[in-house]
Design a protein around this nucleic acid. Structure first.
Lengths: 355, 355
DNA sequence: TTTTTGAAGGAAAACGATTTCCTCAATCCT
DNA sequence: AGGATTGAGGAAATCGTTTTCCTTCAAAAA
């Protein structure tokens, strides 16, 4: 507790003492300034590359001191002053979903390249948790917030209204479809799957397994699929739907497939609105002794990278999650200085497997 | 720029103005203090539950003001003053690995419960990136750092030496095996797999597919497996090893299995030191027209939750990632106030599938 | 009645950066 | 020569908290 208040005396010596084990204060800008024999203002300016504020000689002295002391500015001090930190909050609905984890990984990489730090949160698609995290990100003075599958919540409305930089990924802003968005054209993708199937054979019935349809992605995928089938001459009654309760897509796929199996007519081609739903359906089919894709063909969404290795029976709409990061960051950047940015559509692709 | 320096005048009115759209400064402790008619010190003390510093009546007034204004302390101010933020850095080697993502999700949940905020980073098992993130976490005044599969790096040595709170998960500290660790007993798990197989049939050869063995987890798993086999009377020469280059376990499994297939004797039972390696091996076997587990039995490590759904052919050592979070946080907490904590072993379990 | 205590609460000093003012020269126009 | 401009750099304000000192006042102890 007796930290000597000496500021003037014995400056040269004290530098060496700082790296002791005990209370070891991290190197501050003041130490650098003392060692370089300049003011902290100058150190700050040199570090931030401000022009015409230091001779090259002074700058060199400062940089030497920085290197010698291993100085690295504390983000906290800077954030306080600038009222803005380098943190970007990423609120994901479910990290257990490999597709979402892949997206998060890609975003993390891109954020890092842009000099941001990602704070990743798992909202479990729960509005209360999402709100809590939104509040926390505000408290952290986060530069922006990326919502990787958002749910409607009061504070989300509030932040949107306040014009905070929000980027929605995969699922559009539930409160305003025109908010900045990065994702595929879900309607077109659903439509493409229908076309793909019809090109081979128009015989129904067709199946559609989905989770909640109250959100943009699912809605659009389903609508596109139905539209594609109808456009190809399939009657709406030929499209059988299945779903399940809860938020776990695996369980939903399992239950939904159970429902289809129990129905009077069993579709031979079934679109699942996520890979996980397809996995659940696959398991249910296996339990029923049916083979995929010989007996029943499944089509998923996302195309989890593992599919190629262990799910060779699953065709899927590939969503290029690995490419999301740069686009998300670009959208965020646009939002930060132009104060507006619009949807960034990613290309999708049909990956056909298993014959 | 002409922010009126009025402190005393017109307090009551100004409160309502704060939530305007434009520059809308977030609610600060000063506003709360003004509205409650107390000093900021008192507000701070009430919020932090300091005893004997406010009558219950004053406290109520403060809380009312907080509620009315929707005040939430900015983490940055607090962090600066306390020289410690509520951020905990989690450095994961590869978020694309579902097992690691699962662990991260579990840790995130537990951190949140304990009032921390997780900053998640992907090091790609690259020492330079790990160092960069370690530095960044220091700059953020992170309360602690969790290394979810660490690699050796200079700054890691430095932080360890400085006594910073570090928790190693899954792979031990490459610089000091006695650092706080959370994970399974890898040696025992490898041993158990050997025992399991020998109980049925002692006929070799056996296979072992692994990535780099320069780190604790792989080393121990392999050593335990070999020890188990040898203890059961299997000759070391009966244990055939395969591996591949690079860091992608899928590719390593694929290549390693290729090597085994090309060898003179093909093992019928193969332990893969991660699920991903097993997936790679599975694909290679499928390409060779071999069936799992009928022709060749595979044993993985991790037991990715998806296994139950789409890899019913894979037995695995289940690592209870979902339970890691609380233990990691407890270890961190112990480290923070007792300044030391030791290994927290998690139980493993053999999950037998496919036959 | 005087002294001690303890509770209640305010003023102000941190914390570590950035940024706004300054000041002081030297150079540049007329 | 004299004013304007520019480059170089320092002092100090600022951001939003927490925490250390104070001061005051009432109740308890002497």
């Amino acid at each position: 507790m007796k930290r000597a208040g000496i500021r003037k005396a014995s400056q040269t010596v004290s530098d060496h003492v700082t790296s002791k084990a005990g209370g070891a204060r991290p190197v501050s800008i003041a130490m650098v300034a003392r060692r370089a024999g300049v003011s902290i203002a100058t150190v700050s300016r040199v570090m931030n590359g401000v022009e015409n504020k230091a001779t090259s000689e002074t700058a060199a002295r400062v940089r030497a001191a920085v290197a010698a002391l291993g100085y690295r500015p504390q983000s906290v001090g800077r954030a306080l002053r600038q009222r803005e930190s380098r943190i970007v909050g990423v609120l994901a609905a479910n990290l257990g979903n490999p597709a979402m984890a892949a997206a998060a990984a890609s975003i993390e990489l891109a954020l890092r390249d842009a000099g941001f730090v990602m704070a990743l949160c798992d909202t479990h698609e729960d509005p209360a948790i999402q709100d809590e995290y939104l509040a926390e990100m505000e408290a952290q003075l986060a530069r922006g917030i990326v919502l990787l599958v958002a749910v409607p919540s009061p504070r989300l409305d509030q932040l949107r209204a306040a014009g905070r930089p929000l980027v929605f990924v995969n699922r559009r802003d539930p409160g305003d479809e025109t908010s900045p968005f990065v994702g595929i054209d879900d309607h077109a993708a659903g439509f493409a799957v229908a076309q793909h199937w019809l090109a081979r054979d128009k015989a129904g019935p067709f199946g559609l397994l989905h989770a909640s349809l109250s959100f943009s992605a699912g809605q659009r995928r389903a609508a596109g699929f139905v539209a594609g089938l109808v456009a190809g001459g399939v009657a709406e009654a030929e499209i059988l739907r299945g779903t399940g309760s809860g938020k776990c897509h695996l369980a939903i796929g399992h239950a939904g497939m159970g429902a289809l199996l129990a129905g009077p007519r069993m579709p031979r081609r079934i679109l699942c609105l996520s890979d996980l739903i397809a996995y659940g359906a696959y398991r249910r089919l296996s339990e029923a002794g049916l083979r995929v894709p010989d007996d029943v063909a499944l089509f998923g969404f996302d195309d989890n990278p593992l599919n190629a290795w262990i799910a060779p029976w699953l065709s899927a709409v590939k969503i290029p999650y690995d490419d999301f990061g740069p686009v998300v960051v670009a959208t965020l950047a646009a939002l930060l200085d132009e104060a507006q940015a619009k949807a960034g559509f990613m290309p999708h692709e049909l990956v056909i497997r298993g014959g």
